[in-house]
Amino acid sequence: MIVVGISYIIFIIISYISYKYVYVPYKENSKVLKLFAKGYTIQGIFDQNTFLSPEIEELTKKFKEVIQGKELITASKKQAEYLALQNQINPHFLYNTLEGIRGETLNAGLDSVAQMTEALETFFRYTISNVENLVSLEDELCNIENYYIIQQYRFGERVNLKIDINREDEEKILKYKIPKLTLQPIVENAIYHGIEKKITNGNIIIKIEATKNRMIITISDDGSGIEEDLLKKLNKKLNIISFDNININNRKKGGIALVNVNRRIKLLFGEEYGILIYSRVNAGTDVEITLPLIEGF
């Protein structure tokens, strides 16, 4: 009887140890690795406190070094450069702008032609040069205003732009750094995929808020909105970090794709930052960008 009792106690102890130090770590590792395989999480692998073997732990440490190394930053910079040069200046935008210049010239509106040409020149210069750098929010907003001037020659009063920022903290907020060419592609999408489809006038509002640790920029339009199924697919893509190389033959309309802007933000700052889209058909779209607060220097 005593032997049976001791055996039972030993069985319970072995079961507990097996559960705590084998089964639980296995389930945790399995869950994180499955999510990683689907592209949803990277940081979770690094946060693991238990590993099934020293070899797996060593492999994870090595992988973290690669992820945080120069290879990823270099890839991000090359991606930004390539996207800016190949996708940003798309034919749809360029041809309509040149057509606007031609029409103004025919009407002998020399002052307005000069203004439009200056805005176009400033926009291209900002877009193409030093695309890998972080820039001040103020510079990004100036680029948006230039872009808006250009679009007014095509859409006139059909498109209205407003920038909403807390006046008390405006000077400080405008000095925070963000990745270059973050806002313009989203404003472009709002115009061409939202407001252009409307019969009536449309509005775009860029709202900027700063918390203790984050900057939240929301670009809202009252355009045609996005259907629910497509919205779910877009947000799913935005939740996944893809390490695929850029296809040099992939030319997307509407400037730099939202997915690529989001990917760059996540690669530079981490998975907790990026883009999320809210939308309703015939009601408009909100694109929320979350960034860390980076002081100007």
Rank of each mutant, 00 (worst) to 15 (best):
L120W: 02
D244W: 13
I208P: 09
Y23L: 10
H193T: 02
V22N: 11
F46E: 13
K266R: 08
N262E: 11
I45A: 05
F155R: 03
F63Y: 01
I204T: 00
I10C: 11
I226W: 12
P292H: 08
R264T: 14
F11V: 14
R251Q: 15
I2V: 11
G44E: 10
Q48L: 03
N189H: 00
A210S: 09
N130I: 13
K175D: 02
Y23C: 12
E157A: 12
I173V: 02
L98M: 02
I226R: 14
L59N: 09
N49F: 01
Q79M: 01
E171L: 09
K162L: 04
R125S: 02
T218D: 02
L83V: 00
G5W: 03
K236S: 15
Y23F: 10
I256P: 12
E121Y: 13
D286C: 03
V4H: 10
G69Y: 05
E58P: 06
I219D: 05
A75M: 00
Q152P: 08
Y19M: 13
G254T: 13
I165V: 04
A37D: 13
K266E: 15
L98N: 03
K233S: 14
M215S: 09
A80T: 01
E170R: 00
I246M: 12
N262T: 13
V24G: 05
G100W: 01
E227V: 12
N96T: 07
V113G: 00
I163C: 11
I205G: 00
L52W: 06
F36V: 09
N143Q: 12
I89L: 05
K172A: 02
T105R: 05
G296M: 04
G254Q: 10
K198P: 01
G223Q: 07
E55R: 11
Y21F: 14
A80P: 00
N282L: 03
K78M: 01
G255E: 09
L231F: 15
I219S: 04
N133G: 05
E171K: 06
S7T: 03
I206H: 04
N250F: 15
T182H: 03
S53L: 08
F46N: 07
Q115A: 11
N133K: 14
T182L: 02
A119H: 10
I191R: 00
K266D: 12
E295W: 05
I294K: 07
E209V: 08
V66T: 04
